[in-house]
Simulated assay, not measured.
Amino acid sequence: MTEAGGGKERLLRAAVEYVAANGVGERSLRQIAAALGTSHRMLIYHFGSKEGLFVEVVRAMEERQRELLAELTAAEDDPIDAARRFWARLADPALWPHERLFFELYGRALQGDPAALPLLDGIVDTWVTALVGPLEKAGTAPDAARAQARLGLAVARGLLLDLLATGDRAGVDAAMEEFTRMYAATLPPR
Rank of each mutant, 00 (worst) to 15 (best):
L120C: 06
L119F: 09
L105H: 13
T38E: 10
A116V: 13
H46Q: 07
D77Q: 10
E67T: 00
L53H: 02
I44E: 12
V124P: 00
V58C: 03
A34M: 10
R30C: 04
L110G: 04
R108V: 05
L11C: 08
V58N: 01
Y45P: 00
R10S: 14
S28M: 13
G107A: 13
R84S: 03
P114L: 06
D92A: 14
A35S: 15
L43H: 06
P93R: 12
L43C: 04
E76P: 00
G23L: 08
D113N: 12
A115L: 10
M42R: 10
A33I: 08
R41C: 08
V19D: 11
H98S: 05
F47T: 05
Q31H: 06
F86P: 00
A21E: 15
E51R: 06
F47Y: 08
W96I: 00
D121W: 11
L12M: 12
Q31N: 08
D78E: 07
L117Y: 07
I80V: 14
R41E: 14
F102V: 05
A83C: 10
A83G: 11
S28Q: 12
L29T: 03
A35V: 09
T129P: 01
P79Q: 09
A75W: 02
F103L: 13
W87M: 09
A91E: 05
W127H: 15
H46A: 02
G48A: 02
L68F: 01
Y45F: 13
L131G: 11
V19F: 08
F47D: 10
V16P: 04
R108Q: 11
M61L: 01
D121Q: 15
G122T: 06
H40S: 14
R27P: 02
R10E: 14
F86I: 00
V57P: 03
I44F: 10
Q65I: 06
D81K: 14
P114E: 11
G122C: 10
L68N: 01
I123C: 09
A70C: 00
Y45A: 02
P97C: 04
E26Y: 04
L101V: 09
L117V: 15
S39G: 08
E26M: 04
W127S: 14
T73P: 00
F102L: 12
E76W: 03
A83N: 10
R13D: 15
E26C: 02
D121L: 14
D81H: 15
E104S: 10
Q31F: 03
L119S: 11
I32W: 01
G52V: 01
M61H: 11
L69V: 03
K50F: 02
V128D: 12
R30A: 15
S39T: 13
T126A: 15
L53D: 04
V24W: 11
D125L: 12
N22M: 04
E62N: 02
A91L: 07
H40L: 03
E17A: 15
W127F: 14
R85M: 04
V128Y: 07
E104L: 14
D78L: 04
E56P: 00
T126N: 14
T126V: 11
A60K: 02
M42S: 10
A130I: 03
Y106S: 12
V24K: 01
